[in-house]
């Protein structure tokens, strides 16, 4: 297996709260972000997503465990130069113009002066910022700031793009555009690592995921494997098998796991007719809620009343 782009190995982090209390933000977090993957980092507000990202960015320090970037320790400046970062709700200097700011950050990323104009033109085009390059950032709306945030994150063509809630504040058109840009970056060979609590975005973009809650990673893996574990839905007419539920149109429906498939089909009542046999589309959002609840013991069942995704 190729060297992961990013790895967390048993990373714990705590900070001082009130008085002598210490708040444990992360507890033995281990993550592996494979090269050229799109990694969705899922978690509710306060779960530890931003803390993990800030540790990765060097904004927080004092953790236990090992964080490696392109196989290098966190402090390695060459590794850091290959990193692009869009913070959650980014703010910028009010009195600098878009063009000035982008050049400034490109220089800080270690780009040579000769490469900067072309790199800036690329992101102006990708994010429609060309006409705004002389405008000062204080006049920008939240969505425009988000666009500039993505522009500064990708201007130096990073190998790992870390995006903290990248779609916040965007209208539907720009959400779609952001997804396009992220797909292009991925096609270029960059690895995407982004946190979100809007799970449909993760569903659309990611091939890997991890779920974090209360500073612990509950689960991680390939999204395809997760989707593959969804139940089989059999719709039919005539005599009902055991456990089937009636549908309003007079038909019935039964759900069973992939492993029961052969046995269930072999033991259908005589005269029963199969109308449809589908893998039920899992709704990541419901699954996420259920997973977190399960961890806390508030109901462990996989959601059976999940919304279906139509015939396939």
């Amino acid at each position: 297996m190729a060297e992961p782009e990013l790895s967390f190995a048993d990373v714990s982090f705590s900070y001082r709260g009130d008085w002598l209390n210490r708040i444990h933000a992360l507890t033995t977090v281990s993550l592996l972000v494979p090269q050229a993957s799109a990694f969705g980092f899922l978690g509710a507000n306060g779960a530890g997503k931003s803390t993990s990202i800030k540790l990765l960015m060097g904004l927080l320090h004092g953790h236990r465990g090992d964080i490696r970037l392109f196989g290098q320790p966190l402090g390695d400046h060459r590794a850091r130069a290959r990193l692009g970062y869009l913070p959650e709700q980014p703010y910028f200097y009010d009195n600098l113009a878009v063009g000035e700011y982008l050049v400034y950050l490109a220089k800080l990323s270690g780009m040579s002066a000769a490469d900067i104009p072309a790199a800036c033109d690329r992101v102006y085009q990708l994010l429609d910022l060309g006409d705004l390059r002389t405008r000062k950032l204080k006049s920008f709306s939240k969505g425009m700031r988000q666009r500039f945030g993505l522009a500064q994150a990708i201007v130096h063509r990073p190998d790992l793009l870390v995006l903290d809630e990248p779609f916040s504040g965007l209208d539907p058109l720009w959400r779609a555009r952001f997804k396009q840009v992220m797909a292009l970056e991925r096609a270029r060979g960059a690895t995407l690592f982004f946190s979100s609590h809007i799970l449909s975005d993760v569903e659309d973009l990611c091939d890997h995921y991890a779920v974090i809650d209360h500073g612990r990673v509950l689960e991680q893996g390939r999204l395809a494997d997760l989707m593959g574990s969804s139940p089989i839905e059999l719709t039919g007419s005539g005599p009902k098998p055991a456990g089937a539920e009636d549908l309003p149109d007079g038909t019935w429906r039964v759900l069973f796991a992939e492993s029961e498939r052969a046995e269930r089909l072999a033991h259908l009542p005589a005269g029963a007719q199969i109308l449809r046999l589908d893998r039920q589309r899992i709704a990541l959002e419901d699954w996420f809620v259920a997973r977190v609840r399960a961890f806390h013991g508030a109901g462990a069942a996989l959601p059976t009343g999940a919304r279906t995704g139509g015939a396939s």
Partner: peptide
């Protein structure tokens, strides 16, 4: 407070 520092210090900058 305004988090303008984040985009700067995330770069390879001591």
């Amino acid at each position: 407070q305004q988090k303008t520092l984040y985009t700067v210090l995330s770069r390879p900058l001591p």
